[in-house]
């Protein structure tokens, strides 16, 4: 092989290896952050609603720190190569999307939009060919959100909060209506979308239990 060609190949290879190493480093860091975040948010299941905002305050700075990762990645990834590298960090990113949307739901009861999540995580529009929040990553995060809310519906009843499941039910049905607008391929997203139906079913069961115990006293008696 002539040496000029070989040299060129070699330098391209080296550049790639270097980029991969640098991204890996950032992803390790990113992963730590989102694991901490998810660890904190896991406590919502045993936290009464009045203390929820204290919990969110604890999570906020960790969420904000993810912006550092975003910026660092934007520095590393060369122009136009977003899709080449994104798989390396997308697991962590989906955790971050999940955390951001969960925190917003707990705070305002609404769904944080894709651009709003992107902003929260510090993505700048001008980086869009290097690092950006792809639709599929946003959707994965939102599905995780629904998974978690079905668990929250159950646990909030255990904690004596009978309103939360009804709130969750309405919120999640809206999201599900959104998802059913999509034409999905037979991929992970499709499989996870299918699983949403089970979450909705679970939530509906909780709503059912709670409503009937409030409104059908005769039933109540029988059950006891």
């Amino acid at each position: 092989m002539d040496s000029q060609n070989l040299e060129r190949i070699n330098s391209m290879l080296d550049a790639e290896v270097e980029i991969r190493e640098k991204i890996k480093e950032q992803v390790t860091e990113f992963d730590k952050r989102t694991r901490t975040l998810v660890g904190i948010l896991n406590r919502i299941h045993s936290t009464r609603s009045e203390k929820m905002s204290t919990l969110l305050d604890q999570a906020r700075p960790v969420l904000d720190s993810c912006r550092e990762t975003t910026a660092a990645l934007a520095d590393i990834v060369p122009p136009d190569q977003f899709w080449k590298w994104k798989d390396m960090w997308s697991l962590s990113l989906r955790s971050a999307v999940f955390s951001a949307t969960l925190m917003e739901y707990l705070n305002s009861g609404t769904l944080l939009s894709l651009p709003a999540v992107a902003e929260t995580l510090g993505f700048k529009p001008e980086w869009k060919d290097r690092v950006t929040l792809a639709v599929e990553d946003y959707l994965h995060g939102v599905i995780t959100l629904v998974n978690e809310l079905s668990r929250l519906a159950v646990n909030s009843v255990t904690l004596g909060d009978f309103e939360q499941p009804i709130k969750i039910s309405l919120f999640v049905k809206d999201i599900f209506a959104g998802f059913s607008m999509l034409n999905l391929k037979n991929d992970t997203l499709r499989r996870r979308y299918d699983s949403l139906k089970y979450d909705i079913k679970k939530i509906e069961e909780v709503v059912y239990d709670v409503s009937l115990r409030k409104l059908a006293p005769s039933a109540q008696e029988k059950a006891e």
Binding site: S113, L114, L182
Partner: peptide
């Protein structure tokens, strides 16, 4: 759109856009 989606209609509008993209 508002940064948070607080009605079924806004959610549907956003997902309609996602559908086109996909």
């Amino acid at each position: 759109l508002p940064p948070t989606l607080n009605s079924r209609d806004t959610i549907l509008a956003v997902f309609d856009h996602f559908r086109e993209e996909l």
